[in-house]
Nucleic acid binder design. Structure first.
Length: 563
RNA sequence: UGGGGCGUAGCCAAGCGGCAAGGCAGGGGCCUUUGGAGCCUCCAUUCGUAGGUUCGAAUCCUACCGCCCCAGCCA
């Protein structure tokens, strides 16, 4: 029973099953995985799935996971991205230790192996142009045909390849191709390009090279050099696996890694395409890679999602081979789960309305003891000042309330959390008839929020003492895209952007404890949601990003009756 | 019409010949000094479809249907 319970709480999926079997049956003695980002953009939540898989497996099976940059295309790659990727993987909570690699570390070895292939008669320099190569490749249903340069001698190929390296030829003039099978049903076998001429500086190797290996020629060989046992990638590389294996078999590589593919993550109401994310940033649809609406790890972090929530989410969704789109609510559920356990509770009023307690002594202030986190007694309590003039949330009052509205209204008594019961006696309006102030009385016997006669108001409100409240800016965030499937049914992706994805509120008020809140800290504004201190905050002028709302059954009820 | 994959609830996903896990979402209820959280409970007589094998099929076989990926000198 115990072992059953223990094993059922372990993560299990087809990749872990394969690793476990390989270990059990002695095909490997230690599992070695790798996370191989190309430094041409920022990491997003989809990468988090892969990171959690690769680092997670290594940890669970006492192996190791390498961080390797797949930096074989200098025209798209930048040091900025390398730095950001390292920071994001660390933020997610993973450590590659000494195992930091770059495909570019292997450029010399890769070059040597390319010449090996040439000497074996398994690679050749092709003078065809890019367009000609495409034409010669054939189509999905028709075989390709041989390039006229396919049968050059190894000597000539070696000479040409060396001259490609030395910079003698312009971009696009020649490529090195593996000589495999122009008639293969798998297009990756139709003499794939393995080296191209790119007179372009590389973030790491500078101008040492003007020819660069393609992904197919670099990835598996880098795996072999590092001793990777399980090279885990996404489904679109399935067709490349035979080619991956071909290079491993035809080259004198030091180990025999294997590739396994899983379905990449898709999420509703957002998009996980580096191309589109780049465009959102470059065209100003968002404020940057770290915009709290972005699905990038840096954006998610600024939004206030804890790394633990992201990891929990990765565990929830599993790993399989079927294409899927996960509802973003699952991510939000995981995030709320950790925030509920860890976030300190605070009072904040986003849309204030004045409350005056007529029978409370003018000039008096009390320090009320308020629980920091009812889920975690060890978080203790804090003092929140209470006085005669208060702010409450405008939404928490209705002059003419519908049946199920339990909050404040004329003649009704509610509890001010951890303070007193108050009753609304009078509604003050301006010339236009807008409610501008509520005149209330309090019951001194209910100090702390409990009545000696045990009567229980149907609602508990959050509040702020007017004299002590700190002004703040609060940014409300919602899904980046209004449609769950952006760009579906032929719509332009950008038409589906949610116009209400960001709402900036000024004139919000927060309790004094928040005046000097630490950037990056996420707290719960009681009854409103989770909010994260934004780096735009300055001393005494905090800025908060709404991470997520609390689940709101009142709002749900409203929506249902309105529908 | 070539090659490679995938179809289990609204969504994700276990299941590996013995009678459909779990989570998210949703419904109902309890509880509550957050209309939060928590707790209880309901939610697939059926696994893309049709045949077949078997005492027994989501699991094996056959055919069909649907969806995804591949024709970068991107990864």
């Amino acid at each position: 029973m115990d072992t059953q319970n223990a094993s059922s709480s372990e993560k299990s999926d087809f990749v872990r099953d394969i690793v476990a079997a390989d270990l059990r049956e002695g095909r490997i003695s230690e599992v070695v995985t790798r996370f191989p980002p190309e430094p041409n953009g920022y990491l997003h939540i989809g990468h988090a799935k892969s990171i959690c898989l690769n680092f997670g497996i290594a940890a669970e099976f006492s192996g190791r996971c390498h961080l390797r940059f797949d930096d074989t295309n200098p025209v798209k790659e930048e040091q900025e991205y390398i730095d950001a990727i390292e920071a994001d993987v660390r933020w997610l909570g993973f450590d590659w230790g000494e195992y930091l690699f770059y495909a570019s570390d292997n450029f010399e070895q890769l070059y040597e192996w390319a010449t090996y292939l040439i000497r074996e008669g398994k690679a050749y320099v092709d003078d065809l142009s890019a367009e000609e190569i495409r034409e010669y490749r054939g189509t999905l249903t028709e075989p390709g045909k041989a390039s006229p340069w396919r049968d050059r001698s190894p000597e000539e190929n070696l000479d040409l390849f060396a001259r490609m390296r030395s910079g003698e030829f312009p971009n696009g003039s020649r490529v090195l191709r593996a000589k495999i099978d122009m008639a293969s049903g798998n297009i990756n076998f139709r003499d794939p390009v393995i080296y191209r001429i790119l007179h372009s500086a590389h973030p790491r190797t500078g101008d040492a090279w003007c020819i660069y290996p393609s992904y197919d020629f670099a990835h598996g060989q880098s795996d072999a050099i590092e001793g990777i046992t399980h090279s885990i990638c996404t489904l679109e590389f399935q067709d490349h696996r035979p080619l991956y294996d071909w290079f491993i078999e035809n080259l004198p590589v030091p180990s025999t890694p294997h590739q396994y593919e899983f379905a990449r993550l898709n999420l509703t109401h957002t998009v996980l395409s580096k191309r589109v994310l780049l465009r959102l940033v470059k065209d100003g649809f968002v404020h940057g890679w770290d915009d709290p609406r972005m699905p990038t790890l840096t954006g998610i972090q600024r939004r206030g999602f804890p790394a633990e929530g992201v990891r929990e989410f990765a565990g929830m969704i599993g790993v399989a081979r079927a294409d899927s789109v996960v509802e973003i609510e699952m991510l939000e559920h995981a995030v709320r789960g950790v925030l509920n356990r860890t976030a300190l509770r605070r009072f904040a009023v986003l849309d204030p309305i004045k409350v005056t307690i007529d029978n409370y002594p003018e000039g008096q202030t009390e320090e009320m003891d308020v629980t920091n986190n009812p889920e975690d007694p060890s978080a203790g309590t804090r003092k929140v000042p209470f006085s005669r003039e208060l702010w409450i949330e405008r939404d928490d009052f209705m002059e003419d309330p519908p049946k199920k509205f339990f909050r404040l209204s004329p003649g009704r008594e509610v509890r001010l959390r951890s303070a007193y019961f108050v009753t609304c006696n009078e509604v003050v309006k301006d010339a236009e008839g807008n409610v501008i102030e509520l005149r209330c009385t309090y019951d001194p016997a209910t100090r702390g929020g409990a009545a000696p006669d045990d009567r229980k108001p149907k609602a508990t409100l959050h509040w702020l003492s007017a004299a002590h409240a700190v002004p703040a800016e609060v940014r409300l965030y919602d899904h980046l895209f209004a449609s769950p499937f952006p760009g579906s049914d032929g719509r332009d992706l950008f038409e589906d952007l949610n116009p209400a994805s960001e709402t900036v509120l000024s004139g919000c008020l927060v309790e004094p404890a928040l005046e000097e809140a630490a950037v990056g800290e996420t707290v719960q504004f009681e009854r409103l949601g989770y909010f994260c201190v934004d780096p735009d905050s300055t001393s005494g002028a905090p800025v908060f990003n709404r991470t997520l709302t609390l689940k709101d059954s009142w709002a749900r009820m409203q929506a249902k009756t309105n529908a």
